[in-house]
Design a protein around this nucleic acid. Sequence first.
DNA 1: TCACTACATGTAGCTTTACTACTCATGTCG
DNA 2: CGACATGAGTAGTAAAGCTACATGTAGTGA
Lengths: 112, 112
Amino acid sequence: MSAQALKGHLDGMLLAALEDGPRHGYAVMEVLRAGSGGRFDLPTGTIYPALRRLERAGHVRARWSEEGGRRRRVYELTASGRRALSDERHAWQEFSAAVTTLLGPHRRPATP
Amino acid sequence: MSAQALKGHLDGMLLAALEDGPRHGYAVMEVLRAGSGGRFDLPTGTIYPALRRLERAGHVRARWSEEGGRRRRVYELTASGRRALSDERHAWQEFSAAVTTLLGPHRRPATP
DNA sequence: TCACTACATGTAGCTTTACTACTCATGTCG
DNA sequence: CGACATGAGTAGTAAAGCTACATGTAGTGA
């Protein structure tokens, strides 16, 4: 997977990972890894700053939770986050359709 | 379209635009615009540096052409460029499948 | 007990890549 | 003549993910 292939598409996936309920960062990381068949095995240096970005943007709300001596930062979608997710889904459909069209498949010239 | 949605995917599309024969930069630009239904209306500041990048990488070969007082820089795929295009197509399929899976569609909870 | 691994969060600095905002030049159409 | 499409290019900027690190707890196996 190219280094910056997911530039601009990560936020949508993070929001989607939070759609079914609040999750903490590490869990979000595993959702991405599992849901992509291991292709998106993102380092913590990617995931945590991205979540903070979404928090600053008002798309998620965060709180600390302590369970069994384990502190976790739990993120939850806001209304704005749901709207953003919907927008991202729409944008992704348009984007991926356009790229798929432009990228081929290679139609080899007819040999009559 | 999000500002840097195509980070990392542009090169493949440029290579694809050159697959059916040599083209100059401006023509490549129009292939992307037309082929995306107007969604990828990229500024020259994006397209020309990108083509030079591909040239440096050895994926395209460039030459000057003069027609009717109009100088054009014509780009052509190299063997390495064809390999790269094939790789990009494969990477795109994996990538887009993973994103599509992760992004949804939203399965709303059953209401029995 | 000690080491190692999984869990859990985070930051500083780097790199890549596309975008903005220009410059320069020719041909054509009103 | 002026505006616009064609055609190529650069300098500087911003964004976003990655690398490499720091920090700490809990569990597991030797």
